[in-house]
Design a protein around this nucleic acid. Structure first.
Lengths: 247, 247
DNA sequence: CGGACCTTTGAATAGCCTCAACATTGGTGG
DNA sequence: CCACCAATGTTGAGGCTATTCAAAGGTCCG
């Protein structure tokens, strides 16, 4: 039953993945958007030496709900989910994070939710204690972290309106618009969703069947188009916005 | 229709209430729990001079969703709600704040949700610009604010599990346990809820009728006892915890 | 091409909501 | 001090949405 700790070891403590080691921040693609953006070059390199680059495969979990908070990280590449679940296995995805986002719980003993890679991903991983210490000595970093946390809180609270008060149809429409904003469509206008139907259901607080039904109906109405398992084309954004009933 | 701005003026800009003015932090009941706790006496007084004490009556709204973020505040006394709503009037309460909590959106242009007093309340109110400036010069304050925001985010995400995945019964049980933890019971073990049935419904993402039905059923089962409109006695906490299906 | 997994579709059910009437509460004015 | 009234809360009946359970259809992998 408890293979959890073993797997944690694998990903967090003894990465089997290419360690991407030794890379400096000079070529880092997220250096101007992550929380380290405001540090000067020397400080950023100092922070970099505290951490290390880690590669994850889709499906790997980096942190588990309720575990001791031992690491925090910047997301360099890929998409991950934050999730909590009830004792009997119902899951709720409480956040989806993208490149340049920050994950983990600094200044706290416990990780309040699990973090799992949805796609292959790369992280810039720091031991929490060392990160906390560094942050205490660098106000710019802490300020940036505060800004990001305030934004996260605002977005999370907005999502509560969706979970508590929107219908399935509104939920799916809102989700698709959100994806359209965050992800880049290919030449045909098709977006590759980083989430399976089950994961979409877990984001929206509905069942997989309801997600499927709503999407096929929207396709029938010509609002969206479905391409394979993960592809969606947002054909009529105006109609989607009407369906989403945004505040 | 738009009496909103008028009322905002009344509460935020030209308080009709006792201004409680001139009080220093020495006798402040929340000074050891609010975000100013880590400041030295001189800095705390300096911060105090930036702001002013304001009294609110139950029902008054201090900030509106989407408005410019012009003020932030510490709650000295009372209970307030944070809420968002859809275009067609469905409301979701996204947070309930108590004495020593911090409200408003520092370092950001917009207030993301409305703030309304549920009981009579007293605030220590700061113009946002001046507060932001002070915070930038005082790392301890910013650190404390970060800690609090991280905690808020964790609790908000936990609440998403309730909104997205719990049944009405589990929601009500979880809510009552939460109230039992935050509020102090009187000699008879009765808790005075700061929320009406409608507000409880808006916290839990269900209807007022469902709240009422669940509560009367729990009373019938002997798990709780209802005293007047706002009173509840948690008779069997163990049973309540079982009903709440906590993670 | 086979097979595992994911997704879609269908039918029946349950849970919550809606609408409506009624009861209680607590405040107000006679 | 009591009667009344508006606001709040409770109860009931019926309907609708989303869930559950089940099976078939696609998709992508080796």
């Amino acid at each position: 039953m408890d293979m959890r700790f073993d797997m944690a070891q694998k990903t967090a403590a003894a990465p089997m993945a290419r360690s991407c080691g030794g890379q400096s921040c000079d070529m880092c693609v997220v250096r101007d958007h992550a929380i380290c953006a405001d540090l000067n070059d020397a400080d950023r390199e100092a922070l970099s030496r505290i951490g290390r680059r880690v590669a994850l495969h889709a499906g790997q979990t980096v942190m588990w709900e309720g575990d001791d908070s031992t690491v925090v990280a910047n997301v360099i590449e890929g998409t991950l989910k934050l999730a909590t679940s009830t004792g009997d296995g119902r899951e709720q995805i409480v956040g989806v994070v993208y490149a340049s986002d920050f994950i983990g719980r600094p200044f706290g003993a416990r990780t309040p939710h699990s973090v799992t890679a949805l796609t292959d991903a790369r992280l810039c991983l720091f031991p929490r204690g060392a990160f906390d210490g560094f942050a205490m000595r660098h106000g710019e970093l802490q300020h940036r972290l505060l800004q990001r946390t305030l934004d996260d809180l605002d977005r999370t609270r907005d999502w509560m309106l969706l979970l508590g008060r929107k219908t399935a149809r509104e939920k799916v429409a809102t989700f698709l618009l959100d994806m359209g904003r965050r992800l880049r469509a290919d030449a045909d206008g098709v977006i590759e969703l980083p989430l399976s139907r089950q994961q979409i259901a877990d984001v929206l607080g509905i069942t997989i069947e309801t997600v499927s039904r709503q999407m096929t109906e929207m396709k029938r109405e010509g609002v969206i188009d479905l391409v394979g398992r993960r592809g969606v084309r947002l054909v009529d954004i105006g109609a989607l916005e009407a369906l989403a009933e945004a505040a």
